[in-house]
Design a protein around this nucleic acid. Sequence first.
DNA 1: CTTATTTTGTACCGTTTCGAACAATAAAGT
DNA 2: ACTTTATTGTTCGAAACGGTACAAAATAAG
Lengths: 197, 197
Amino acid sequence: MSKRRGRPPKYDAAEALKGALQVFWRKGLTATSLDDLAESMEMNRPSIYNAFGDKVSIYRKAFTQFANQLGDELDTILDESCTLKEAMSRFYERALTTYLDNEELLGCFVTCTAPVESVAHPEIRRDLATLIAEIDSRLKCRLERAQENGDWPSSRDTKTTAKLLHATLQSLAIRARSGEDRESLVDFYSSTVELLC
Amino acid sequence: MSKRRGRPPKYDAAEALKGALQVFWRKGLTATSLDDLAESMEMNRPSIYNAFGDKVSIYRKAFTQFANQLGDELDTILDESCTLKEAMSRFYERALTTYLDNEELLGCFVTCTAPVESVAHPEIRRDLATLIAEIDSRLKCRLERAQENGDWPSSRDTKTTAKLLHATLQSLAIRARSGEDRESLVDFYSSTVELLC
DNA sequence: CTTATTTTGTACCGTTTCGAACAATAAAGT
DNA sequence: ACTTTATTGTTCGAAACGGTACAAAATAAG
């Protein structure tokens, strides 16, 4: 029942990581300076270092938080939607909302900022690989469920279709960042859903 | 008939850009220093600056060279292949060869390094958007040709399928960089070709 | 009130960065 | 031979970088 000794931290860890995520999302790992992070996390450099370690560590923690948060939301959508078509439409729509937040064309944090660092930072490469495999797996499971429900032909290949649905998500991420307008992106995922689901 | 005055350049412009491309491909724009470029381009910094401008300019020139070269090769493959299936298989196989050059997992130069810079550098964002539209268009044309030849059902949507084929290319680029092995990537594009073509 | 513990914030260090100034070099024109 | 033009390579400087040392501040325990 002992209370924590010492001066109480001014920051909230999750909130600080959210700030870090915002800068990393716009600038990427390398172009983000510790000063940028200090400002966006509302902490000063030594406190950041003490709490989260060096820049790569902060990035990876922000990465994990992003993956967990968006992943959970997308999983919920996949689970609670009745038909496969409805599930995938809502899935992409939710992703787009994140990618085009506040009229800024940010794309997906992971897809747009992690690959470039994957060569210099093997830890990030592994984080990326793990996340990709995770999403593949979730989509494949959803397709299998649709097959059990008779909502999707059991003759079709779940593994390939899952990867194609994932590829569409990745493409939306990059296209959003390239400035493609929302209407065009919606058109893309809508017709993809029609074609594959 | 007048010859060029002054000391003749030691470097070959195309060769130097090739060197620049190699570093940018591994490190990305921001993490690449002018010293890195000087070494890889076999020029010293002032000469580089004099010949190609600042770092972003060099990157964009390397980008253009890459896009032209790979684009031309892929177009040739699309054009000279008889069947659509054969065309797309060779298309992806050629891309993979580039992405996995010399056992290093580099992925696509454009897909893996350009998006992260698109927010800070609008010129790069436009370059990226232009290239994406270009590839979409080429693939769509190939599908239309297949329809004319009776090689592909004229009932199907060329625009959406072109984007899906493109999304598969982008996904291969990212997956290669994440460390996914060649066998898995070949499996992915093979079954994609079967499914879509 | 004193001590122990933890975070904060200022100040600093050594390195790397980009870009430019400068003289040296190599070719063509006169 | 001398001038003109263009590239090379050395050198420099100001700024930004990541990371750390250290004292001040704030709380709990004794």
